[in-house]
Amino acid sequence: MPPSTNPTLRQQRLGVELRKLRERAGLASTAAASLLGGNQARISNIEAGRYAVSADRVRTLARIYTCADQEYVDALAGMTGGRKRGWWEEYRETLPRALVDLAELEYHADALRVAVMIHMPGLLQTPEHARATFRENVPRLRPHEVEHRVSFRIKRQEILYRDHPTPYTAIVHEAALRMGVGSPDTVREQLGFLIEMSEHDHISIVVIPFGEAAFPVSGQPIVYAFGPTPQLDTVELDTEYGCEFIDAEAQLAKYRTVLDRMEARALKPSKSRDLIHRIAQSI
């Protein structure tokens, strides 16, 4: 099978982790290829995510690299599965790659923890709120492009409704609740939707009220996606130039601390719900 020229985010991450294992073992790619019974190009393609690998091949590589962390190896083996296409792949030719990768990341996450300062969390937006947001996009989107992005955003929310929904925590600053995106009816509907979603057992929405002390965050939305093991966690940052994915262990630790500090300054879920309700009533 020829190497893929368009590996998915999950395939790329598996390759990155296999490269980390090899480097920790102190092996060059040529030496690893020799032990595996292949050539250096194959190792390079596996580590770039261009070759789909089987769970057995992952376990073989882990033995070659003398990795004793069985939970981690099992998790890596669980990331295999060839080139099976997720629903998000149908959008790959029509949306920015990073948006499609984000949907893939959310779908496979064991849990999600997000923080927003001035935007509503994407997975908690109503269609009208999302539509009003996309209409302000720069460069401006055409009407059919707006609808395409709305449909994609709403489809991403299916992970909160499936048989085994993804545990989801949203840390929302009060500023985001008062931004007034769209018409007053759109704002009230959006705030009501937050209250409704907060009543699900697997969803926690906490609000940082105005007046709380500063915390170490730049204001950009943060998505922390938990993997089956801590080494496989991923942070996604939403910037003006697109999504940025981070998986370095030091950076993961940093963002766990940032989110912990933000949540410590937030109201408890019940009081957060009351605040959202009061803001909705004031509109």
Rank of each mutant, 00 (worst) to 15 (best):
L123W: 05
G37W: 00
A48C: 04
L35F: 14
A68W: 01
P121G: 02
H108M: 01
R24N: 10
S44Q: 15
Q40L: 03
E128K: 01
Q70V: 11
R59N: 04
R63D: 13
P7L: 01
G38F: 07
E93G: 14
R19Y: 05
A25V: 13
V116A: 08
A111V: 12
R97V: 08
L35P: 07
K20E: 10
L14I: 12
A41R: 13
P121V: 01
A48N: 13
Q70I: 09
R83L: 08
A33E: 09
R97F: 06
L124K: 01
A68I: 09
P127Y: 05
R10Y: 02
L9K: 10
K84A: 11
M120H: 11
E106W: 08
V116G: 06
D69G: 04
H108D: 11
L102Q: 01
Y72I: 06
L102T: 00
R50V: 07
V100H: 03
Y51L: 15
R13V: 04
R83P: 04
A103C: 04
V58Q: 06
G15M: 02
T60V: 14
R50N: 04
D101N: 14
P96D: 12
E89V: 04
A98D: 15
R92P: 00
E104T: 02
R22A: 10
Y107F: 11
I64F: 06
A28S: 15
H108T: 03
E106A: 07
K84D: 09
R59D: 06
L76D: 01
A115R: 02
P127I: 07
Y107P: 00
T94A: 11
V114T: 15
E23K: 15
Q70K: 11
R10Q: 09
L124T: 03
K84G: 15
A115M: 10
A25C: 05
E106Y: 09
Q12P: 05
E90H: 05
A115P: 00
S54L: 04
G26L: 07
Y51V: 10
R24K: 11
T8I: 06
L18Q: 01
L102W: 00
L14K: 04
I43W: 13
S29W: 02
M120T: 10
E71S: 12
R113F: 13
T126E: 00
E47M: 09
G26F: 07
R63N: 10
Y72G: 03
E23N: 08
E93Q: 14
E89C: 00
D74R: 07
R10S: 12
E71P: 00
R22N: 11
K20R: 15
L124W: 04
N39C: 12
D69H: 11
I46Q: 07
H119D: 11
M79N: 09
A32K: 12
V73I: 15
G122A: 11
G38N: 09
Q11T: 01
Y107K: 09
T30S: 15
A115G: 02
L123P: 03
M79H: 09
R85S: 13
S29F: 02
L36D: 10
A32Y: 13
R59A: 14
D56K: 14
R113Q: 11
L102C: 02
